[in-house]
Design a protein around this nucleic acid. Structure first.
Lengths: 184, 184
DNA sequence: CATTTCGCTCAACATTCGTTGACTCAACGA
DNA sequence: TCGTTGAGTCAACGAATGTTGAGCGAAATG
């Protein structure tokens, strides 16, 4: 019907997205080291060489694939605690694959570690600025660390007590704790 | 002086310990995948083949090296919250290498993940039993997750806000948060 | 239609790594 | 002293992996 179903630019775009999607999924599931170009290629139904041709190297593929849709800054309309709690899943669905891939790799891939540390440091700065009482930076860091720990335990490790808890219940139970940190 | 400084049993014991020590250090620094038998052998000043001869396989070496000096059960003499806080560094020094190695690997090595999940589930059960009010298990899981997150952010990621904070300050700032979770 | 462009595949290379088997040499027991 | 044991080394294999270059065939271009 509409134009050639397979123009060159279109094919290229689609294959590239197929590779990126497959890469995100596998990076998220296995982390950087254990993800092989061959596995990504197979999942994308493509030759391994093509992945290299498109992205240059495994490292570059990783960077392109897990480029996190940068954490939106606190918009200040909500209270910081609620803003944070919202992020545990009340408003947004499950974490994007890119984020999971990044988290999965952050303990064993130096670049991922650096990236995550930077992102978290940014969040800490914002939060500290928002709550701004005594020892704000330390307490903000603990709030962020708490979110990190809960997310890891819930999404990556699958603690049995958290596995079947709904994000809402988790957020609810977590609220007093975060508030205690925010208020001081 | 005392016997031959190099009896057979003695030499064996020492070399084995030297390998295990090197393995712990490198596993803790790089995680399971990125740790090579060759690197461990080099650090222990030994031939790679000897490592295999002693421990059979990389996986076996890992299991032997990171066998955590099993987390002591809550002894019930202290309040659970204080007990947990104590573990962040007030009483004990820095975490043992074995624990760090386990944590470093838990997101990318299925066996390590399984092990850690088991250990944490155990802690959750104990804590839930100790605090035992409404939704105890969920809240206990969140307490454990918080400790996990803070430890990761502090020891493995090195969040700048936490890097130079003393364990005492961290524990102090964290107390109200954990208490909020424990009391409900 | 002829020619060029380029998405894509095939086969291979170089390296790294876990693992193995033959061998060396000092400690040990008779 | 002599044969045995066992700690430790050396060289190599086999598999996996990131990466590369030549080539094929269809789409674009004139």
């Amino acid at each position: 019907m509409e134009g050639t179903p397979t123009s060159r630019a279109e094919r290229r775009r689609r294959t590239e997205e197929r590779i990126l999607s497959a890469a995100r999924a596998i990076f998220a599931e296995r982390g950087f080291q254990r993800t092989t170009i061959r596995a990504v290629a197979a999942a994308a139904e493509v030759d391994p060489a093509l992945v290299m041709q498109y992205f240059g190297s495994k490292q570059d593929l990783f960077e392109r694939a897990v480029r996190i849709p940068s954490i939106p800054p606190l918009d200040g309309e909500l209270e910081p605690v609620e803003e944070l709690l919202g992020r545990i899943g009340m408003k947004m669905g499950p974490l994007p694959q890119a984020t999971l891939a990044m988290m999965r790799s952050m303990l064993t891939h130096p670049d991922a570690a650096e990236e995550v540390r930077g992102k978290l440091d940014g969040q800490v700065a914002q939060l500290a600025d928002a709550i701004g009482s005594d020892e704000a930076e330390l307490r903000a860091a603990l709030m962020v660390s708490t979110m990190l720990g809960v997310t890891i335990a819930h999404q990556l490790l699958g603690l049995t007590a958290l596995r079947d808890a709904s994000p809402e219940r988790i957020a609810e139970a977590l609220r007093p704790s975060l508030r205690a940190l925010a208020d001081g």
